[in-house]
């Protein structure tokens, strides 16, 4: 069976599978996208944000 066929049988054939797959992948994409863009943002603005300088002012509270 071809890849597309596999795909169809696995995901699209039943609505009871299809809808949860949509929800789950939206959830996973949301988290992944946020992690990705945040990582880029943090490296682009390295050293400028509060979390980069916080250690200068807060003693480790352990």
């Amino acid at each position: 069976m071809s890849l597309a066929n596999n795909f169809y049988n696995l995901i699209f054939k039943r609505n009871s599978v299809y809808v949860p797959v949509v929800f789950a992948s939206a959830f996973a994409f949301g988290i992944g996208f946020d992690l990705g863009t945040t990582a880029f943002w943090d490296s682009w603005n390295k050293g400028k944000q509060w979390k980069d300088i916080r250690h200068n002012y807060v003693q480790q509270e352990e």
Partner: peptide, 16 residues
């Protein structure tokens, strides 16, 4: 300004 570009955050040490 170090926060001038469209992707540039404020320099928080400077804010302080």
């Amino acid at each position: 300004w170090s926060h001038k570009g469209v992707l540039d955050s404020f320099d928080h040490a400077s804010i302080r």
